[in-house]
Design a protein around this nucleic acid. Structure first.
Ligand SMILES: [Zn+2]
Ligand SMILES: [Zn+2]
Ligand SMILES: [Zn+2]
Ligand SMILES: [Zn+2]
Lengths: 132, 132
DNA sequence: TTGCACACGTTATAGCATAACGCAATTGAT
DNA sequence: ATCAATTGCGTTATGCTATAACGTGTGCAA
């Protein structure tokens, strides 16, 4: 999908996520944007919905948080799965793709005649810096 | 892990999940157990915590729900990843394992010196019955 | 002009999860 | 037997996450 011009609210939310060093919850984003006039959760969620739709932001299901896409210009998102390694100490997220994993999963789903629409691959643990 | 004797509350929650044909949210479980004396969410969450610890129940992060393990007697859980295909029409969940996927992901994590602790692989879509 | 699509703002509500307190039963050492 | 530690349980209150429902304004095309 080609990303259209972002609206004011969408830009504000996207900027906050881009500058963050770890994924943020919707309410944390709200707090960071109160000075720019944000007052209600819906202002954040509506912006996030669009940013997710455009593929420039990912939702991390296992921690109810959002993160800016680390590879916005690669086309992997359109034909492959995205995976995340999430450090539970420092919060850092590594976004990665593996076509071998994609194909294995897709083949399995195909063998079950299961029609995949959205996928979630998230590994929680400790990054190289934080590992004991 | 060898599963110890379940307490009364744990058994009630486990039975509800075992009989269900789709994953259940904690509050849905609570409603189903009001007749057996359940009154508060914590009664459910505390039982679920133990059942998750024993590995007889899985949590589906992407839909905030819980499901009984479909392969309670296989040892895959101890050394491999578990994946779920979740039908968004009928709610049915297929739990599966793929060692090839496991190894690919584990190799990648190892290459990053990332120490994995918990994993989530969930594919949402439509099962063979529900696909248009 | 009229109708539609879209972004936005606000209030209220729904849904998911845990904190903090106290009590009772069990266990295991002293 | 007694004490301390652990575990499960019940209750109340609270916090976090997400959406429903209403109304406003703006731009654009028929
Ligand atoms: Zn991405
Ligand atoms: Zn870290
Ligand atoms: Zn299982
Ligand atoms: Zn189905």
């Amino acid at each position: 999908m080609t990303t259209p011009m972002l609206t004011k609210n969408q830009s504000l939310v996207f900027d906050v996520l881009t500058k963050a060093e770890a994924p943020l919850s919707a309410y944390t984003i709200l707090d960071k944007l109160r000075d720019q006039g944000f007052r209600a959760p819906l202002q954040v969620y509506r912006a996030l919905d669009k940013l997710l739709e455009y593929g420039v932001v990912h939702r991390l299901e296992s921690i109810n948080s959002f993160v800016a896409c680390a590879h916005p210009n690669e086309d992997c998102h359109s034909h492959g799965l995205v995976a995340f390694a999430i450090c539970e100490s420092c919060g850092q997220v590594i976004e990665f793709h593996d076509h071998e994993v994609d194909h294995r999963l897709m083949d399995w789903l195909k063998s079950q005649k299961f029609k995949a629409e959205k996928s979630t691959i998230e590994i929680r643990g400790h990054c190289a810096n934080c590992a004991a």
